[in-house]
């Protein structure tokens, strides 16, 4: 058994949010540069890509947030079953890390206490949405994303009949992308969860938005479906910023789970070009 003081978790979470909000991952950066240099044909689309890349440079250089919507804090924690947390409450520790990052980084706090009856700001950008998983071993893996809502708002869940198969998944993704148009700040990264129950599909989809650009599902059939859908999304012509062009999406990541014989939930989670995430293993 390994003991980990929760203050260690707080510090880690704080560092991850400070980093993710101000510095984009190199995979996303490189994909944007390739899109500009090798793929985009539209002059307006190229102009948009140029500004997106310059923005990432400016954010890295100044420590200013990439986007003023510094999102809702989402935390995936894979916790080794041989870990024992000491020194306090784990959830509080995660939230305190988020709070400190948003205060020290001068990030916008965008959470209201109650979406319907008390829309006062929580003042801390907490509580975070925390997904924990118990895994083997005595390490803790933390993956975080500040999730912007321009793109979160354009996400969707649907139940397909088992007979609808891959065609049905593809059609649902395409309908979601077309309905979203310019709103999710394309070029996007699309995470898809297929199978399980409603919430499992949604969690897989969120995780899918955080995979490295260029990663393919190890199952060849899903890998091929990812590429086929990526091509179809880019063939919509929506383009960078939705102002027309050949680059609407940087990558599509599909995960699946065993499903019930009677139904196939499909969740589509869209992430904008500010695809901010960071991870650490403790």
């Amino acid at each position: 058994m390994r003991e980990i003081d929760v203050s260690f978790v707080s510090t880690a979470v704080k560092g991850l949010f400070l980093k993710a909000n101000t510095s984009i991952g190199q995979d996303v950066y490189n994909a944007l540069v390739t899109a500009l240099e090798k793929i985009e044909e539209s002059p307006v689309g190229r102009r948009v890509l140029e500004q997106i890349i310059k923005n990432h440079d400016a954010a890295r250089a100044t420590g200013m947030p990439i986007c003023q919507d510094t999102g809702m804090a989402v935390v995936f924690a894979d916790i080794g079953q041989d870990v024992h947390f000491t020194g306090g409450d784990l959830v509080q520790a995660v939230n305190s890390g988020v709070e400190q990052a948003y205060s020290e980084g001068f990030f916008r706090r965008s959470l209201v206490r109650d979406p319907l009856f008390d829309r006062t700001n929580t003042g801390t950008n907490t509580p975070a949405v925390i997904h924990t998983r118990i895994v083997r071993g005595e390490r803790v893996h933390i993956l975080i994303t500040p999730k912007g809502f321009g793109s979160e708002n354009m996400s969707a869940v649907k139940f397909l009949t088992p007979a609808q198969g891959p065609e049905g998944v593809r059609d649902f993704i395409m309908d979601t992308v077309k309905a979203a148009g310019p709103n999710p700040c394309p070029p996007t990264i699309i995470g898809v969860g297929v199978g399980g129950t409603m919430e499992l599909a949604a969690i897989m989809a969120k995780r899918g938005t955080l995979y490295t650009v260029g990663r393919r599902n190890p199952d060849a059939k899903y890998g091929a479906l990812e590429l086929e859908i990526l091509e179809a999304v880019n063939n919509t012509g929506i383009g960078p910023g939705g102002l027309g062009g050949r680059v609407t999406c940087l990558d599509v990541h599909i995960d699946f789970a065993p499903g019930h014989i009677a139904g196939t939930p499909v969740a589509v989670n869209i992430c904008c070009h500010a695809a901010r995430h960071a991870e650490i293993t403790l």
């Binding site: 923005n55 990439i66 003023q68 700040c185 070009h273 500010a274």
Partner: peptide
């Protein structure tokens, strides 16, 4: 450009 927030701030 949506998301070009640090650049615009300059």
């Amino acid at each position: 450009v949506g998301g070009a927030a640090a650049l615009i701030a300059r």
